[in-house]
Simulated scan of single mutants.
Amino acid sequence: MTYNSEDVQKILQIALTRKQEGEFSREQLVEMASELGISSNILETTEHKWLAQQEEERSRHTFNTFRRRDFWGHFVSFIAVNLFLILLNLITSPSYFWAIFPVLGWGLGLFFHWWSVYQSKTEDYEIAFQKWRAQI
């Protein structure tokens, strides 16, 4: 039976997981790579790329958390202010429901804010992420 490189990688990954549920040291990683015939240069380059990817994922997670907290603050403000306006409207002029205009206007803005926060596969998201990253 023959295996392609992707199959070998998956099999070895599962076997390593079953063999040792704990963590591996850097020395163990180097030893495993040498047993598999992977040069130290390739291992080091790959390790740096992997670390950079991990840092990128952490940055994106932090950025997403920041944006979601900002959105929920906006949402709470929307609810509080518009409830006040609706109550004010019902007390002062119950025959004309003028509070619908700020509710709809602000609601439209809130919808677009939600859309920008929870759509993370767009070009606008990438631009916002790069700007945020440059600030930190």
Rank of each mutant, 00 (worst) to 15 (best):
T2W: 02
Y3L: 09
N4A: 00
E6G: 01
V8L: 11
Q9K: 02
I11R: 01
L12D: 01
Q13Y: 03
Q13K: 06
A15L: 14
L16K: 03
R18F: 14
K19L: 13
E21H: 12
G22H: 03
G22S: 09
S25A: 09
E27D: 12
Q28K: 08
Q28G: 04
V30C: 06
V30R: 06
V30D: 07
E31M: 10
M32H: 09
E35Y: 08
L36K: 00
G37D: 04
G37W: 03
I38R: 02
S39L: 04
N41I: 09
L43D: 02
T45H: 10
W50V: 11
W50M: 13
L51P: 00
A52G: 03
Q53T: 09
Q53D: 12
Q54P: 00
Q54W: 03
E55Q: 10
E55K: 11
E56Q: 12
E56N: 11
R58M: 05
H61R: 10
T62E: 11
F63N: 05
N64H: 11
N64D: 14
N64M: 13
F66R: 07
R67K: 14
R68L: 15
R68T: 15
R69T: 13
D70W: 15
W72A: 04
G73D: 01
G73Q: 09
H74W: 14
F75Q: 04
F75W: 15
F78V: 02
I79Y: 01
N82S: 08
F84T: 12
L85P: 01
I86Q: 06
L87I: 13
L88H: 07
L88P: 05
N89F: 06
I91A: 15
T92L: 15
S93L: 12
S93A: 11
P94K: 08
S95T: 07
S95V: 02
F97M: 10
F97W: 12
I100T: 10
P102A: 04
P102M: 05
V103M: 13
V103N: 09
L104V: 15
L104Q: 05
G107P: 05
L108I: 15
G109M: 08
L110K: 02
F111M: 04
F111Q: 01
F111K: 06
H113W: 08
V117A: 03
V117T: 09
V117R: 00
Y118P: 00
K121Y: 08
E123R: 09
E123A: 13
I127M: 04
I127R: 12
Q130P: 03
K131H: 15
R133M: 14
I136S: 13
